[in-house]
């Protein structure tokens, strides 16, 4: 049997399957009933149902022909102005089949360059008779205000513990897993209300056996980035520059992680290190400085190396 990723397998097929964000979902349902839709901006942290809601709307509205009338573009991979001028415009200007309008879903719109966002302004208005736009983003402040003013803004919030449990229990039932209560708590703790992360942790843990306890959950979750980052920082703090540098090279060059992600993880893991608290504060200041330098256009590899070499000096 083909290996299926649960985040896709259990993706909601209809708005009524969406378990959280009740106030938003209700309004969305109302739009679907009236067969009308404003341009919308979904803002909120990752894994809170932005993409799921957009797809669910399309399925509810268009039924079987949803694929033909729904275009999903991920702005993080296609972020330039030419995408707006060619791909999006061409889809938007062609009349829809059997429906009053079609939907363009621009995921992670906060990655769109500002030129691209400006190009989008007119497109949204010009084709609004046949096409509605849904933009999603983590930070609405990164969307230029002329675009925000053309959209109804919905703010998605992190899932509550109950919501995460409801969803996980559904998956657990379907997959016939045996997950104890502490394990569920652990998954929620690690996911911080990010349903995608929670699902991924659960699926990985399930690959080790049907019986899942909290130890397994922690073990699985630490396979991910934080372990590498902590190891790297520990090398640096103890004055072993070469292995720290190697770890960093593995992450950036071999695994292709972005410097921003790593520096964020460094900051997030700092209190996991076993060093005096004064040192931690010093390091936070240093991390901030190099984060700034990266935003100033510095190369993340060099800047992170410089940061690690500074860690060695903290007294």
């Amino acid at each position: 049997m083909e290996y299926q990723i649960w985040t896709e397998k259990y993706r909601p097929h209809s708005l009524s399957e969406i378990i959280n964000q009740k106030h938003i979902v209700e309004r969305l349902k109302a739009f679907v009933e009236k067969k009308t839709l404003p341009h919308m901006l979904f803002a909120g942290p990752p894994g809170t149902g932005k993409t799921a809601s957009a797809i669910a709307i399309a399925k509810d509205l268009f039924g079987k022909s949803w694929h033909a009338n729904f275009q999903e573009t991920n702005a993080s991979d296609a972020r330039g102005i030419d995408v707006v001028r060619t791909r999006i415009k061409e889809f938007a200007r062609i009349k829809p089949l059997n429906t009053p309008f079609k939907i363009v879903f621009l995921d992670e719109s906060d990655s769109l360059t500002s030129a691209a966002q400006h190009a989008l302004r007119r497109t949204i208005e010009q084709y609004s008779n046949v096409c509605r736009f849904i933009l999603s983003c983590n930070y609405s402040s990164k969307i230029i205000s002329p675009l925000q003013s053309r959209c109804v803004v919905f703010r998605f919030t992190n899932l509550s513990k109950e919501d995460v449990f409801t969803y996980l229990n559904r998956v657990i039932k379907e997959e016939k897993l045996n997950v104890d209560k502490p394990a569920l708590e652990a998954i929620y703790e690690l996911s911080e209300g990010d349903l995608r992360k929670a699902t991924n942790i659960l699926q990985t843990a399930s690959s080790l056996g049907d019986k899942i306890n909290d130890n397994i959950v922690y073990e699985v979750a630490s396979q991910a980035k934080p372990k590498d980052v902590i190891e790297m920082m520990n090398f640096a703090v103890n004055g072993n520059f070469k292995p720290a540098r190697k770890k960093l090279h593995d992450m950036i060059i071999k695994q292709g992680l972005s410097g921003q992600d790593i520096i964020k993880a460094c900051h997030g893991q700092i209190f996991e290190l076993e060093i005096p608290d004064e040192k931690k504060i010093q390091m936070i200041n240093q991390i901030g400085e190099y984060d700034f330098r990266i935003s100033e256009g510095g190369d993340s590899l060099i800047q992170l190396e410089a940061m690690l070499s500074q860690f060695m000096l903290n007294k």
Partner: peptide, 10 residues
């Protein structure tokens, strides 16, 4: 339904 960057990190 997510970006290549997210696939790498998530």
């Amino acid at each position: 339904h997510c970006s290549t960057k997210k696939i790498r990190t998530e």
